[in-house]
Amino acid sequence: MQAMPGPSTSVRVLVIVPAWNEQDSVGATVREIRETNPDVDILVVDDGSGDDTVERAAAAGAEVCRLPFNLGVGGAMRTGYRYALRHGYDVAVQIDADGQHDPRYLPTLIAGLDDADIVIGARFARTGDPYVVRGPRRWAMVLLARVLSRLSRTRLTDVTSGFRASDKRAIAVFASHYPAEYLGDTVESLVIAVRTGCRVTQVPVDMRSRSAGQPSSSPVRSAVYLLRAVVALGLALVRRWEESFDEGTTRASITTPEPSVPG
């Protein structure tokens, strides 16, 4: 779809919806985004689903990009950022297909890009929040938030939130580097962004409970989560990206211009 000469002032926004076996919620998510934000383009990146995710997303009016097999959120998101870069979008926003992220906060996130390159929609801690976590999982989140706050020189409280908006600069960074590893898609990608010079900030948002599935709270799993968080963070801090591209990526493949349309 070419840039519609719409009434909205020049800022072209792409909403990237990574979806893996989300047939029950993807349609509603896409429709809600369209209703609340009629000017944005929506790209659902199907991460090798075996169900009707693709059909329902397309029926709801989204562009659907189909990965041939499951790559994880990181793979789906890098695909989305590459699409955004090649089609010259000014802003890319990640919204999960499970309905957890409320698209009514989208303008708030985009407004935050005036003073930052990445805006995180951070879960607003309040009583009755279904997402109150304790134990090792809580320590992991606090540790990640502290380290990333120091790194980005702003106060960040919810760095594992996938609800985030990126401007052109961050899109270019994420199109060349976006980790596929678990936790890499949120934590490491933020470290990459900060270390390549992007400014990060957060705005408080309300999260909704997922339509299906809850984060596991068994002690063993929480401990494993803490361990993986520490490993992901540690690796992110010592790795180098500035000059290199991810394996299989070249400068040309990142900056391929928009295909010209004949006629």
């Binding site: 779809m1 990965l67 695909t79 493949s253």
Partner: peptide, 19 residues
């Protein structure tokens, strides 16, 4: 990592083709 990149490119190309 290369397979991942190829998979992403295939997905993007397929979308362009369908469009």
């Amino acid at each position: 990592e290369r397979t991942r990149t190829l998979a992403e490119e295939v997905a993007l190309l397929r979308l362009e083709l369908e469009r």
